[in-house]
Design a protein around this nucleic acid. Structure first.
Lengths: 155, 155
DNA sequence: TTGTTTGCAAAAAGTTTGCATAATC
DNA sequence: GATTATGCAAACTTTTTGCAAACAA
């Protein structure tokens, strides 16, 4: 993260690097405050926006809720993820195929500066077997499960 | 569209089918009202949500603005699009490669009910040559160009 | 010191909901 | 005539902005 080294920015980086999965700005703020860091919500939004601009985080859209979710980008760069719609845990997937495909589309169509967004979601094996919620097809399931979203994060 | 046949729903379908490109709920509402159809914004939102649930429209996220954009889905089903970040025009792209890739990820990871979102954006040849705006890398370019977004739509 | 960063409160933008009215089947 | 759809106004959610005070370099 460029700019000045402040207590708040260091805290954001530290908590974010403790998160195994995608978090929203508000969840991150909650983790920070809960973890005894004093920081304003606005500052968290600004820090995440800067990280995004620098390419320091991968960003994904939250289906339910309409917001953005952030995850520290691995050292080897840009990745795509498969996220469980039930528990929220995510894992990087091998996306070479998609990268090449996107590049070829650019060449074929005459478009320049082609950027791509690829998001995969599903139900992971644990949730399918262990969960007793059954079907997860309706929109409120996610809301009910939301508290569990923070799993895998540490402050 | 299921449910009852109302003047408003027919108007939504008619105007939507006249749109060559993705439109937001509010743009669609504007087109409807401008085209002498009396309809409330709420009704447009509800119609689009129902169409989405039925799979009648493809939905894409609007980068600038944070909303959703809708486009009537072709008869042959689910497609992915390449959209120009300058003029907003979109074209379907061949995405068999991605479909297969997504299917294989599902098989490899043990996830079920895997869904994918793929969005491609770039600058089309016309905008690159004809536009005198030069670089389009900063966030306000899209806002300035936004009025042009409705191109390709007819009521 | 000097320019950057912070954080509160308020604004924005997009979407959804409550509820009475109106229209369809 | 019963049920479903509409539309206004108000609520809600997430994110951004104005601006004064605090802070890092």
């Amino acid at each position: 993260m460029g700019g000045r080294t402040t207590r708040q920015r260091m805290a954001v980086m530290r908590v974010l690097s403790g998160c195994q999965d995608f978090v929203s700005a508000q969840e991150l703020h909650g983790l920070l405050v809960g973890g005894d860091h004093s920081i304003g919500l606005t500052t968290v939004y600004r820090a995440l926006r800067e990280l995004e601009a620098e390419g320091g985080v991968d960003v994904v859209r939250d289906e339910a809720g309409g917001g953005r979710l952030y995850r520290l980008r691995p050292a080897d760069g840009h990745r795509h993820y498969l996220m469980c719609r039930d528990c929220g845990r995510s894992r990087p997937v091998d996306s070479d195929v998609v990268e090449h495909w996107a590049g070829r589309i650019a060449a074929d169509t005459g478009f320049t500066a082609v950027e791509h967004t690829v998001e995969l979601t599903g139900i992971c094996a644990e949730c399918r077997l262990g969960g007793d919620e059954g079907e997860l097809s309706c929109q409120w399931d996610r809301a009910l499960d939301a508290p569990g979203r923070a799993r895998g994060c540490a402050s």
